[in-house]
Structure formats: C-alpha cells, structure tokens
C-alpha cells in the first residue's frame, strides 16, 4: 500500500465535503493510503500571492515542510496544488523563504516531496493499472465533459502536467470509468474563481459560456476538479438561464464522485444527487441496449454475408458443372464426328 500525504485544503473541510469524502473513498479502494498533513494551514491561494508573493510561498511552504515526513502530497483542490507547486519551486533553492520557514521552526528538505493534484494522482493510478478490476459498475454511455479549469494545467512551467491547451488526463480517467468523454471547447477556460464575490456579472458570463459549450457538446454531466470551479459552475444555473443565455441546466460533479460511482462505492461517501444517479442508470441501460442491438445487427449482417457467400459458391458450382457437362458433350460429339469422318 502506497502512502501519500493528503492536503485537503479549506474548502474541502466545508463547502466541498463531497470532494473530500469521494477522494478518500476512491483512493482507499485502490490501495492508496492518504495520511492527512498534521495541522495543515491554508495554502494562501492566489489571494495571498497578490498581497505578497514571498509570504504566500512561506505559508504554502509550511505545509510542504509538515508533509515531508510522510511523502508526496495529494492536494485535490486545483488552487491548492498550484500554490503548493509554486512554493515548492521557490523552496528548492536556498533563499529567503526557506530561511523564514526555518526561523518559524519549519524545515523543508529540498526534493523531499512532490505535489500532485487529485487528477494527476488518479491519472498515475490509471496508468499503473491500480483501477483494474475495480470498476464494478461502469458509467456506460454517460457523456462527460471534463472541465480542467485554469490551475490544473496552467501555467505549464509550474503545473508540469498534461497539455495546457488540450489536456486529456481527466478524459482518460473517465474512459477508464466506462464513460464517454466528449470533445468540447471550454476545457481550460477560466470560471472567474473567487471573483464571483467581486464582479458577479463578469463571472456569471464566463460560467454560462463554459456551461453552454458543454451543453453544445451534448454532455450529460460536467466533471470538475476544483472547489472554486464547482461553486461557480454548479450554483446559480437558474439565474444564468434567465439572464445569461444558459440553454439548459447541466449537473456538475467532482470527477472523483463519478469514479466512485463507477467503482460501486456507497453514495453516502460520494454525495451524488438522485437525479444524476438515475441519469447514470438510464444511460447505462441505453448503452447496453444499443450495444446489444449493434451486436445483433452485426450478427445479422454476418449471417447475410455467409448466405450470400454460400449462394455465390453454389451458383459458381452450378456454372462449373454446366460448363464441364458442355465440354464433355462437345468432346464426345467431336469424337463422334471424327469417327464418322474416319
């Protein structure tokens, strides 16, 4: 069993509990132990960075120092994982931030931990086959729009994960869970993050553009990987329908909730809404029916082909026989003629 340090982050304690519980449940099931970073503190997010970059690196660095006795960190929130990654780059060289940490009694050993977002960790698990045999009820037929948002893959120099313009890791994870990832245009477009509290109009415009793109791609559900994205995308959809041109409501869930459902985990840990569970079932039935129909059509086609082949062979055989008959007749008549002549 591999052990990771687990850094939930402030939102997963409160508004995004289902992300926390689903991450823990999924990783536990595939044999990865998550050990919570003892007495972790806020990562600073982009807001602290805006006040003072060094201070932000220091408070994020504290968590890295606390985690270094456990191992590599999984930070599900995209904003947290980005802050921790950024701080780690700072801390790799001996600079003022490391000194500030030491003065406050926290020691970070360079190179001791690497920071992973939950998507990265899950993708690595998919790659190394940890999910094999664990998908008991695959999400067949479910059309999922994977929404990566900004900070999971950007800026590429810090994120160092997947393609910053067209990431595919979450799509691969969804495929593994049996779902159908859809190609869509707003995978990495920004949702406005905390600026919902600053400029509602702007943020709701951005969000409705994202949701409409998913609707256009005919997705059943959007899979997200960040509490801030989730807040913006999932809430206020009715308002956006009224005033921001949102075409229809679309459920938004954490990608780990979907994996959990595919693994048949207890929904008390996943917190999926009944509507969505129902939709998953419907899509699964449809897909199974469609596959069955496809299989039957194929069989019928095979049978028809076989029949045609047989018919053709018989026809050929008949033609051959007729020809042989003709030639033997000719031969015999020829000899006859010759005999007559002789």
């Amino acid at each position: 069993m591999k052990t990771y340090a687990y850094y939930p982050g402030c939102s997963l304690e409160a508004s995004s509990r289902e992300y926390d519980t689903s991450v823990r449940a999924v990783f536990n099931k595939i044999g990865i132990e998550l050990k919570e970073v003892p007495d972790w503190s806020c990562c600073g997010s982009s807001q602290a960075h805006k006040i003072d970059g060094d201070m932000a690196a220091a408070i994020a660095g504290r968590n890295l120092a606390l985690a270094s006795s456990i191992g590599d960190i999984i930070a599900p929130c995209a904003s947290c994982s980005m802050s921790l990654k950024e701080a780690q780059i700072e801390l790799e060289h001996d600079g003022p931030i490391r000194r500030v940490l030491v003065e406050a009694g926290y020691e970070y050993l360079p190179g001791s931990v690497s920071v992973l977002s939950a998507v990265e960790a899950a993708y690595q698990a998919v790659e190394s086959g940890l999910f094999e045999g664990k998908i008991s009820s695959p999400l067949l037929g479910l059309k999922v729009a994977s929404y990566y948002g900004c900070l999971l893959v950007r800026p590429p120099k810090i994120a160092q994960f997947d393609d910053p313009e067209n990431p595919v890791s979450m799509d691969r994870i969804m495929e593994m869970a049996g779902a159908k990832p859809v190609e869509w245009s707003h995978k990495v477009d920004c949702c406005g993050n905390a600026y919902i509290l600053v400029d509602r109009n702007m943020t709701l415009n951005l969000v409705s553009n994202i949701l409409n793109a998913a609707v256009k791609a005919d997705a059943d559900v959007i899979a997200a990987a960040c509490p801030l994205c989730m807040q913006n995308l999932a809430e206020r959809q009715a308002q956006m329908q009224q005033r921001y041109g949102l075409k229809r409501k679309i459920p938004v869930v954490y990608f780990t909730q979907l994996i959990g459902a595919a693994m048949g985990l207890d929904n008390r840990m996943l917190g999926l809404k009944d509507d969505l569970l129902k939709l998953i079932d419907i899509r699964r039935q449809e897909e199974i029916a469609a596959r069955e129909a496809g299989r039957k059509a194929k069989e019928a086609e095979e049978r028809a082909k076989e029949a045609r082949r047989k018919a053709a062979a018989e026809k050929e055989k008949a033609a051959k026989e007729a020809k042989e008959k003709e030639s033997t007749e000719k031969e015999s008549s020829g000899t006859k003629e010759a005999g007559e002549a002789g």
Binding site: E13, A14, S15, S16, R17, D39, W40, S41, I51, D52, G53, D54, M55, A58, I59, R62, R99, V100, L101, E103, A104, G105, Y106
Partner: peptide, 28 residues
C-alpha cells in the same frame, strides 16, 4: 451545513504567524 458557523483553527498558530512577520519588509 456546507457553510459551518464555527471554523477550524490550527494548533500551531504562534509559529504560523511568524511566517507573516518574517516577510514584513516585502509586505508593501
């Protein structure tokens, strides 16, 4: 209950606060 009234406070707040003080010069 997704916006709980009481929040968590970390234990080692004293040392944590030093991280802000140590950077006072940079905090303009």
């Amino acid at each position: 209950g997704r916006l709980p009234i009481s929040g968590h406070r970390i234990k080692d707040l004293k040392n944590f606060k030093k991280l802000f003080e140590g950077n006072k010069e940079g905090n303009k």
